[in-house]
């Protein structure tokens, strides 16, 4: 199954899974933000609500009147469909990651990443793929009362339900930081050819 190494070209599977990942991530960030708007307070430990002190607040109005944000304004409630789309896109992302990961391991794709990019890029890509994305799934599952009932270590290792929620948010910030850096590099190394290479295919200049 070895795919010949063609420097500067992305395999079709990479292009398709990259597009799916981009779509999923965009939907997950938007719906995640909508979910947060219903309670833009974060806590550490097991419990947290408007009657307990928060670790930090996001300085935005909430979509619930009982969260006193000091704005005197209640945002429109988008939590329902946001949750449904969030979970559906999380599933699509998990399937995409499974296909990409299986293919990557079987074809030596990850070794190729290791040899093609410089140290900082290499570390970053492997960190995102093997640490941040799995941690995102872990912290997400750790918020499910049914899942943690059967697998309590998923949440106790993180320090509690609210810690899991806060870590899910921090991991999102780390991924957004990665994407900001990723996009800057894409622009600086030839935006058009890079975008062509990762979508329809073709050589990159980098």
């Amino acid at each position: 199954m070895a795919v010949p190494v063609v420097t500067g070209r992305h395999a079709r599977l990479v292009r398709v899974t990259h597009a799916l990942t981009t779509l999923c991530f965009l939907a997950l960030v938007i719906t995640g933000a909508e979910i947060i708007i219903s309670h833009p307070r974060f806590y550490w430990g097991e419990v947290g609500n408007v009657n307990t002190p928060s670790l930090f607040d996001i300085p935005i109005p909430a979509s619930r009147p009982w969260v006193n944000t000091g704005y005197g304004f209640v945002m429109p409630d988008q939590n329902g469909w946001s949750r449904s789309l969030h979970f559906q896109m999380a599933w699509l992302l998990v399937f995409t990651a499974f296909i990409y990961g299986t293919w990557g391991l079987r074809t030596g794709h990850f070794q190729r990443i290791a040899s093609y990019y410089n140290t900082a890029q290499r570390r970053t890509y492997l960190l995102v793929i093997f640490a941040l994305m799995p941690f995102m799934i872990w912290t997400g599952l750790a918020m499910s009362p049914a899942i943690v009932g059967t697998f309590p270590f998923l949440v106790t290792l993180l320090g509690g339900h609210q810690s899991a929620r806060t870590l899910h948010f921090f991991t999102t910030l780390a991924l957004l930081l990665f994407i900001a850096g990723h996009v800057v590099m894409v622009i600086r190394t030839g935006f058009r050819s890079n975008v062509r290479a990762i979508t329809v295919g073709g050589d990159t200049q980098a």
């Binding site: 979910i35 947060i36 219903s38 309670h39 307070r41 097991e46 419990v47 947290g48 609500n49 408007v50 009657n51 619930r64 939590n79 949750r83 918020m143 009362p145 339900h161 609210q162 929620r165």
Partner: peptide
């Protein structure tokens, strides 16, 4: 037990 609201807050 913990009551977890879909909004994000919880109590025991």
């Amino acid at each position: 037990t913990q009551l977890v609201c879909e909004e994000g807050w919880s109590y025991i």
